[in-house]
Nucleic acid binder design. Structure first.
Length: 392
DNA sequence: AGGCGGTGTCATGAA
DNA sequence: CGTTCATGACACCGC
């Protein structure tokens, strides 16, 4: 069981819309069990009990009574399911049914199943939220969220968001470098103590809760959802699902007021100018710089590997060309050697023929073995007697 | 279960 | 001196 997923104003649910469909609650519970079984979450001190007691979050947090998922209803993104007559000290789950609350059920979105919670990706419905929201948002009432019934909901919502995002360690193929999880800045979400977790999430949730049309019901705000959608990126596949990288989650958790994409990709001057427009704490500044460094290095590593592969391909092609050239040269060498052999043979035959018809000054024939054809400088050939040394 | 390729991250040096 | 880039090394993940 869990509290209600927030619903964006355009009618899309951030999380699977299972409200009002009691038949899927079993699957939902199972999905939550899966989420809560994620090892990293154990460091968050998130209760694995299906009953979420949010009393630990925020001062004087009035609890909200919910009945499974069906009790939450979000017309135009407004939470209307809070029963003020109920005891706020009670945990989220109670026995009041949706019917008892006279709340209409929302249609089950067939695109979402219970496993969407563990699907490591935030629902694609987020792609439809206003991605042009400005941060920090303007003209939004500040404060009060965590002193309201919605605070508990928001906290649980953030837990769920975090749980979903945490699972993305799997899909984003993060290195999971143990070093990374042992360093200070990487543990915001992983090993956060409950009190610190609360504090961090107080920061993480923009103070954007607003009163609904009844003036009573604060809710998880559209800008907050926009904030998450801005901090995260969309994968490049056709699914257009929202993918939270680790740094994006860190940035969200630390309430960094601009998307990681800008942190990484802005030129240094624009980046510094961006930083100057916000008052960031030292940890925030350190995180932003780390995100920028990691982002740059990630791109550099990708380029480096790409170049390495291209270099390997070029060298392999060069090897093939050199082998081909070597084979050609070897054949050419064989051909030249064969021609040289023929020429030498022909020359010897010719020499014997020439010498055999030569006579000395006394008209005696010149013994072939005793003479050698010689050619004086710019002169004709003449038979020269072999010296003893030459003959030997 | 171990190998392998892909990827993110860190450390380090050079520009 | 701070930033960026390139690259080797390492750890992790999925196949």
């Amino acid at each position: 069981m869990s509290p209600c997923p927030p619903r964006v104003k355009n009618g899309n649910t951030f999380f699977p819309n299972l409200m009002g469909d009691q038949s899927v609650q079993g699957d939902m519970d199972l999905a939550w069990q899966e989420i809560l079984s994620i090892t990293e979450l154990q460091g968050m001190d998130v209760q694995t009990d299906p009953v979420y007691d949010t009393s630990g979050y925020g001062p004087q947090t009035p609890n909200i009574s919910f009945s499974g998922y069906g009790i939450c209803h979000f017309p135009d993104g407004i939470v209307t399911s809070v029963s003020h007559s109920q005891n706020y000290d009670r945990p989220y789950m109670d026995t009041v049914t949706m019917e008892q609350q006279h709340l209409p059920s929302l249609p089950l979105d067939p695109t979402f199943g219970p496993t969407a919670y563990t699907g490591m990706l935030i629902s694609s419905s987020l792609t439809q939220v206003d991605a042009n929201a400005h941060y920090p948002p303007k003209n939004v009432p500040v404060g009060g969220l965590f002193n309201t019934p919605a605070m508990g909901m928001a906290m649980t919502y953030v837990q769920r968001l975090n749980q979903v995002c945490k699972g993305q360690d799997d899909i984003e193929s993060d290195s999971g470098l143990s070093l990374n999880f042992s360093d200070g800045e990487s543990t915001e979400l992983d090993h956060m103590e409950p009190q610190r977790l609360q504090s961090e999430y107080l920061d993480m949730i923009p103070p954007l809760a607003y009163q609904d049309q009844y003036g009573l019901m604060p809710t998880v705000s559209q800008p907050f959802i926009n904030h998450i959608s801005e901090m995260c990126s969309y994968d490049t596949s056709q699914t257009q699902e929202l993918v939270c990288s680790r740094d994006e989650r860190r940035a969200a958790a630390m309430n960094i007021p601009f998307p990681t994409e800008r942190i990484v990709n802005l030129p240094v001057e624009d980046f510094n100018e961006l930083l100057s427009r916000f008052t960031l704490t030292e940890p925030q500044l350190a995180l932003v710089k780390d995100i920028r460094r990691r982002g740059k290095n990630k791109v550099a590593a990708q380029n480096c590997r790409k170049r390495k592969m291209e270099t390997i391909a070029i060298l392999e092609k060069e090897i093939w060309q050199l082998r081909t050239e070597r084979e050609g040269l070897r054949r050419e060498q064989e051909e030249v050697g064969r021609i040289m052999g023929d020429l030498k043979k022909n020359l010897e035959l010719l020499e014997q023929q020439v010498v055999s018809v030569l006579q000395d000054q006394e008209d005696h024939p010149c013994p072939v073995d005793d003479f050698l054809l010689k050619q004086a400088y710019e002169s004709n050939l003449f038979p020269a007697p072999l010296s003893k040394e030459t003959r030997a």
